[in-house]
Design a protein around this nucleic acid. Structure first.
Length: 214
DNA sequence: ATCCCGAGGG
DNA sequence: CCCTCTGGAT
């Protein structure tokens, strides 16, 4: 997979931790492409946390409407701006525990920001990530936090961020939720979930050992 | 478990 | 028309 996706990366457009944080909140149940359509105007209108804190709700909703769930997302961003100003001097904290306490920010979003804006290794366990690692036989867990810990034990931290992007890219392009394109998958021969492919426990380990992921 | 609430694909 | 899509909060 290192060969398949040598430079997998975050596809959200951003130039600062704050921009990435907001873009990631907007990306919930929405494609990155659509988020990137609205963020240029959004970031120009609200350059700082204080600008979000004092934003007009209706105007903010209008700017992010096409990303879906715009009312709750606007709520999160408004609260986010306030909390960043009140408790963090207007700066985005570079710490998982602090990030997760911000409105609209769960563990997945926090790890995206840590990994891509702060250079802190993090596994971003979203629906793709979880589905793939289960199909690969790397874990049976379904709880995202348990998945994160299980997979974290298989790879060194320095690989976590890139691994996350590679899994997500592969999930989007090939290993779909409904009809995975196993015929086009170069990993099928190692995949325990592939039709007549290897189903023994070694197959999962082979996927890790063969290093296509790290 | 359910709500939030938009767009595109099959 | 139904389903899905890089969630999070209640």
């Amino acid at each position: 997979m290192a060969r398949l996706y040598p430079d997998a990366h975050c596809e959200l457009d951003f130039t600062s931790p704050l921009e990435l944080l907001v873009a990631t909140i907007l990306s919930a149940q929405c494609t990155d492409k659509r988020v990137n359509l609205v963020t240029p105007k959004l970031f120009a209108r609200y350059p700082s946390a204080a600008d979000y804190a004092s934003a007009d709700r209706e105007e903010l909703e209008g700017l992010i409407r096409s990303t879906g769930f715009y009312r709750s997302k606007a709520n999160s961003i408004l609260g986010l701006g306030r909390k960043l100003c009140d408790e963090y001097g207007g700066e985005v904290p570079g710490d998982l525990d602090d990030l997760v306490r911000l409105p609209g920010v769960g563990r997945k979003t926090a790890n995206v920001v840590l990994g891509n804006a702060f250079g802190v290794p993090g596994l971003t366990v979203d629906t793709h990530f979880g589905r793939l690692v289960r199909r690969f036989g790397w874990t049976e867990e379904t709880d995202p936090v348990k998945v994160e810990h299980a997979i974290g034990g298989l790879f060194p931290p320095k690989d976590w961020t890139l691994l996350s992007h590679r899994l997500i890219w592969h999930g989007r392009r090939i290993c779909h939720s409904r009809r995975p394109a196993c015929g086009a998958c170069e990993l099928a021969r190692w995949c325990p979930s592939f039709g007549e492919g290897p189903t023994d426990a070694d197959a999962a380990a082979a996927l890790v050992r063969n290093g296509p992921f790290s």
